[in-house]
Amino acid sequence: MEVTFRIKRFNPEIDTKAAYKEYVVDVEPTDRVLDALFRIKWYQDGSLTFRRSCAHGICGSDAMRINGRNRLACKELMLDYGNKITIEPLLGYQVVKDLVIDMTRFFDAYKSVSPFLIADEAPVNRERLQSPADRDRFEDTTKCILCAACTTACPITWTTDQFVGPAAIVNAHRFIFDSRDQGAGIRLKVLNERSGVWRCRTVFNCTEACPRDIEITKAIEEVKRALLFDKVS
């Protein structure tokens, strides 16, 4: 099938402002959107720039706006998109080139919530014990691949750089609700600041954008409850 791709292009080396460029590509209906982007890059315009690696939705490289929604290009099939499709970079962060955005702010926010286990000395020659129920408590938020689809779908991210964003909160949640972790206080303090969870307006954009189907808004609300009731449960 023949599909017209409308792609937002911007190379600060040569362009003064972004512009849309159209490409007509012949694709199989079962091709991924990423496959079609490769076909453009390899056979029409080598300068088209995007990140990619695993090509099956687990490395988080190729999050972009596809018809206005944040998606991984490798997890979308052409058959769901008809014969016109618009591709843009994620919103809210500076564009490095074409579909590549500057991830510095994203990873800085992630690092700000101490995203690592904080716990006493581990037992010698055996694992820490954790019941299956305690393990399930934070299962959902372990799935995050740091693709930034959620954070850049959030209207608060678009308007201010003073918000840690959904992805950082998801990764804080993953530890706050881990029965082995003792650093909840450190993370909740960060998330109780003006740049923390309270800026979330519960619009569910993040949940809708997550390619891993993490219930992000729910996770954020659980962190808010932990702060309100001073209790992690």
Binding site: F116, L117, A119, A122, N125, R126, E127, R128, L129, Q130, S131, P132, R135, F138, E139, T142, F175, D178, R180, D181
Partner: peptide, 19 residues
């Protein structure tokens, strides 16, 4: 594997809480 668990890796658990 024990070191990974100690670093925080969330392994699935047996009913007794082991990996």
């Amino acid at each position: 594997v024990l070191e990974l668990e100690h670093m925080g890796l969330p392994f699935n658990r047996t009913p007794e809480g082991k990996i």
